[in-house]
Simulated scan of single mutants.
Amino acid sequence: MLTKVLARVLQSLPKTRTGDYIFSYLLFLRAHRRKPGSGMLLNDYLFRLKTSKEMLSPLRQFTSDKALVKHFVAATVGDKYNIESIAVLESKAEIDAFDFPASCCIKPTHGSGRVILRRDGEPIDKAEIKAWFDLNYYLYKREVNYRYAEPKVIIEPILFGGTKGEDYKFFCFNGKVKLLQVDIGRHHVHTRKYYDGAMNEQDFSMKRPRELGPYELPKNMPEMKAVAEKLSSYFGFVRIDLYSDGDAIYVGEITHCPENACARFIPLEAEQTASDLIFN
């Protein structure tokens, strides 16, 4: 009942920066069971970033779009780090008319967390894809960098044949990699490992369980760090999300407010450890 009441309250808030602040404040309270502070704990910092004018900067808005960000990547580190765009569809009519490849990755350019992986010509739900055009991701979590994003759907190949390659998410501050999150088994049993900027494994996780088994970082990690740092140098804080199979490197997206400032650490006291790594 409380969740339903909170949802109604959140949706009734005005679509203004004041309304965005209250919305984000209530989400933070629910996630962390505390008020956001003024210190340099990661989630507190992200809350301040999310509710600041910085999130409306043209570059943050531009690089939040999964199609437009490829222009930034090409200009900054080179087009070889971009995933091929098979098509960018701009209307529901184009969805109906498009002949989707037998194997492909389908996702909206103007949001996060929604993706369809089509394999071997399996049926796809075009109604679901067309519904993405009605999605305003800003309204979902009040991440204002998405507010004015034009709805589109991007079609890409499935990387590495869908058999290899983890997600490598580089938390960068002032142009330097400070923390690495590795997402393992994302579409199966989703676990995570964390490393500091020198690639020393850490004994905590965030939101997902920590992967306890051995894990070998890819041999091209120095190049991955260099790509992340060059892309991040245009921002104070940002997370650069890369894919790699150990040879090729591709930019997945640029994330400006990881987990919407609402991810809890495992254990909770590890937030101080991670924050010290990022901001010191």
Rank of each mutant, 00 (worst) to 15 (best):
V238H: 03
K80D: 14
E259W: 13
Y234W: 07
A131P: 07
A248H: 12
I129Q: 01
S91D: 04
D276H: 08
E201D: 00
S233D: 05
T191A: 06
E211L: 13
T18G: 08
K66E: 08
F170H: 08
S24R: 02
L277C: 05
M221C: 05
P214I: 13
I86W: 13
R208S: 11
Q61A: 05
G175Y: 05
M199I: 01
N200Q: 14
V238M: 04
N136C: 02
M221Y: 09
L135C: 04
R147K: 15
I184C: 00
G161D: 03
I278E: 02
E211I: 06
A226Y: 02
F133H: 08
I184D: 02
H256D: 04
K4W: 12
L89K: 08
A248R: 10
A102E: 15
P14A: 07
A228Y: 06
I184K: 02
D245M: 03
Q61E: 15
G165P: 11
V5T: 14
K193G: 03
T273Y: 07
M206N: 03
F28R: 04
I154M: 02
P101R: 01
I95G: 06
P218H: 12
T63E: 07
G246Y: 10
S91Q: 06
S233A: 02
N43Q: 15
M1S: 14
L231G: 00
M206Y: 09
A93R: 01
G165M: 07
N260R: 11
R264F: 05
R60P: 08
R48Q: 13
C104E: 08
I95K: 02
I83P: 09
K141L: 12
L68N: 01
V73H: 00
N174A: 12
C104A: 09
F173A: 11
M1K: 15
E223H: 00
S232K: 00
V88W: 08
F237V: 07
W132E: 02
H32C: 03
P58K: 14
